[in-house]
Design a protein around this nucleic acid. Structure first.
Length: 652
RNA sequence: GCCCUCGUAGCUCAGUGGUAGAGCGCACCCUUGGUAAGGGUGAGGUCGGGUGUUCAAUUCACCCCGGGGGCACCA
């Protein structure tokens, strides 16, 4: 439509299919007012062909049109948070003149704004800023939008001392309109849209944390001060959010790890885990499960050295591409490195003896203990450590076998995740990174075959550009836990580079020597991280087969001690991890204590049970008791404590 | 690694410029009690490490180590 079409009517098609006609231009606010005064008051913004617009932005062409109110959750939150970020910037500049504003986007659950200021903000400042924001909201400052000339805008912000804003303007795409939003006396460069006044965001917001953040996300740039906040449609939502955060903190694996006596980490071994008996029991259960599963799927388990000569890492390419992350040592005038990965060692095993194509695919697994020098700021409980054990394996195969091996692995991975209770899994495909080994030609082939194999599995996937390993493209498997958080665990990486660099070969059908393709793969990723995820997913209330202590037998009176001891022995003989508590304490006290310890079953013996040959069974999370005979309880516990894979085999 | 923040008993935490306190836990004694805390007594701390200021530092300042929240990193 051209500008001359001023006399042609504009037709707005509403979500219910009805339409409204206007002559000249119209604004979303006017449409709302036309429909009714209630809507005029409730409207936050308009939506024109799927894009949010200011209520007062003139609409000049026919379009699909919708009014946004607080009922439209996603859009309303987006608008409220965006405005909250602006009001935050406004408050900061009122309180701390000379502070530069940069960017302030909406994020999950809230917003942040990055500021440039010499002096750091303190937590007390955060309170002051929040108070000032409330004041600005109360003032209900009206919003005004202006479109500026690019150069004038850049000069203007530069004159104000807002060098970051000026830089942003300079870098905006040529066609982009330069918009400046005024909130009272204050103004900022912004794409919009915004609510019509500061009062519209309501009072359900809160500043949450203070952090450093690099300008444009690059550690080479200046570090800015970021203020995070959360904002919601009403107080009830805000409270629900804060409660949700508290609940997540309660299942923090570091807190539960201490409470449940599973593991600890201390100063003298930063980023490395001391597994306590209970944590190690859990670990062992997980390891034995995956060992059985791998054996079942045709993997051979191996074990390779921790400390390997620099020469091997040079040959594999790690010394060049990965040196910064490797722990090194030195002996016999040789440079040694703790292995950060197992692959070169597995290739060295592959190279022993002449291999035939008939031996492929050869699946070599190792619960390989690796060390990586992670930046101190990256460490996080079990989730990010410097010493960890992978459920690692390398599949040596031909190019033709990539497809079937990929399918087989994906099937394997999903079955394992299901056994641990994870049903929701996403797949990401990562292609060539900037720093890489191997020619573009090889990368083309590797990416094509891995993507092709993935497509054949029928799984949906998203692209993750530039995130591949230095030796090849990879698939990443991301699972969702019980409270909706995503964890990247499994991976499948295709490698056309390293086997060749280390001289791995097999004799083909044609009697020529060929370099095998290698698939690096892991399902848990690392045991440490996997167990951290399990702790948080189950909030420490593990399924019986994983629980470090599966049951405690305890007594009401000491006359039942002998009986309880005999039962505990019997359960132990059947492979149940059972505790015995004959302390001279009241039953209330013991039930409370073992419930807090998240023991799945408390088996209580009093005089009655001892006389009748029964036991009172109390399951964690239930107040009910069930009186069973000894045989019944032994059968029930052994059945429920059976690992899912073993149970499947037994019933087959 | 960078920014902010924290470090006191086994755990959770209070506190002070004059060498420290609670609850839980632990030990011992009394209590034998039927499903989420029975009572009493007692032990336990170089206040993360170092340097400085001070008559005097756990307290104030600076440095280091470690934890937490972010950023960057996650090959």
């Amino acid at each position: 439509m051209t500008a001359a079409a001023g006399n042609a009517p504009i037709i707005l098609t509403l979500p219910d299919g009805s339409s409204r006609e206007y002559l000249g231009t119209v604004t979303a606010a006017e449409v709302a007012a036309d429909i009714g005064p209630g809507l005029a008051k409730a409207a936050l913004a308009g939506e024109v062909d799927g894009a949010l617009v200011d209520l007062d932005l003139p609409i000049t062409e026919s379009c699909q049109f919708r009014l946004i109110t607080t009922r439209d959750e996603n859009e309303a939150l987006e608008l409220i948070r965006h405005d909250a970020a602006h009001i935050l910037a406004m408050a900061v500049q009122e309180l701390f003149p000379g502070t530069q504003v940069t960017i302030g986007p909406v994020i999950d659950d809230g917003f942040y704004y990055d500021f440039a200021r010499e002096e750091p903000f303190s937590l007390e400042d955060l309170d002051k800023i929040e108070q000032k924001m409330k004041e600005i909201v109360k003032r209900d400052v009206p919003t005004r939008r202006e479109v500026w000339d690019r150069d004038e805008a850049a000069d203007h912000f530069l004159e104000m001392g807002e060098t970051y804003k000026a830089e942003l303007i300079r870098d905006l795409p040529a066609g982009e309109e330069i918009r400046v939003y005024h909130h009272g006396d204050w103004h900022d460069l912004c794409r919009g849209p915004h609510l019509m006044s500061s009062g519209k965001i309501g009072s359900a917001f809160k500043l949450t944390k203070l952090a450093g953040a690099y300008w444009r996300g690059d550690a080479k740039n200046a570090q800015l001060q970021r203020i995070y906040g959360t904002a919601w449609r009403d107080k009830k939502e805000l409270k629900a959010y804060l409660t949700r955060i508290e609940e997540a903190e309660k299942r923090d694996h570091r807190k539960l790890g201490k409470e449940m006596d599973l593991f600890h980490i201390q100063e003298e071994a930063v980023g490395m885990v001391f597994w306590h008996p209970k944590g190690w029991s859990l670990y062992q259960e997980v390891e034995q499960y995956i060992r059985r599963a791998q054996r079942e799927r045709g993997y051979q388990e191996v074990r390779t050295p921790q400390l390997i000569d620099r020469k091997l890492w040079e040959a594999s390419g790690h010394w060049d591409k990965f040196r910064e992350n490797m722990f090194t040592s030195n002996a016999d005038e040789k440079d040694l490195a703790l292995k950060p990965m197992n692959c070169p060692a597995h290739i060295e095993i592959f190279k022993q003896g002449l291999k035939s194509y008939r031996e492929l695919p050869l699946r070599m697994a190792e619960f390989g203990c690796c060390h990586r020098y992670e930046p101190s700021g990256a460490l996080h409980g079990l989730m990010r450590v410097r010493g960890f054990t992978q459920d690692d394996a390398h599949i040596f195969c031909t190019e033709e076998q990539i497809l079937s091996e990929t399918k087989e692995f994906v099937d394997f991975l999903f079955s394992v995740y299901r056994d641990f209770g994870f049903e929701e899994v996403r797949v990401k495909f990562s292609d060539r990174p900037d720093v890489r080994a191997g020619s573009d030609d090889i990368w083309d082939r590797a990416e094509d075959s891995l993507r092709g194999a993935l497509e054949q599995t029928g799984l949906e996937f998203e692209m993750n550009p530039g995130e591949g390993a230095f030796y090849g493209p990879k698939l990443e498997f991301v699972l969702r836990d019980a409270i909706g958080r995503d964890w990247q665990c499994g991976t499948l990486q295709l490698d056309f580079v390293v086997p060749g660099r280390l001289g791995a070969e097999y004799v083909g059908e044609d009697n020529d020597r060929h370099t095998p393709v290698m698939l690096h793969r892991a399902i848990f990723g690392s045991f440490e991280r996997w167990i951290g995820i399990l702790i948080e997913n189950f909030a420490g209330r593990f399924p019986l087969w994983l629980a470090p202590t599966q049951a405690v037998v305890t007594t009401i009176v000491s006359d039942a001690d002998e009986y309880a001891t005999a039962l505990a022995e019997k359960l132990k003989a059947r492979g149940i991890r059972v505790g015995l508590d004959t302390r001279n304490e009241k039953i209330n006290y013991k039930v409370r204590e073992h419930s807090h310890a998240k023991i799945p079953f408390i088996l209580v013996a009093g005089r009655r049970e001892a006389d009748e040959g029964t036991i009172a069974v109390r399951r964690l999370g239930s107040k009910e008791q069930q009186v069973l005979t000894i045989d019944e309880v032994v059968d029930m516990l052994t059945a429920e404590a059976t690992a899912p894979d073993v149970a499947r085999q037994q019933s087959a």
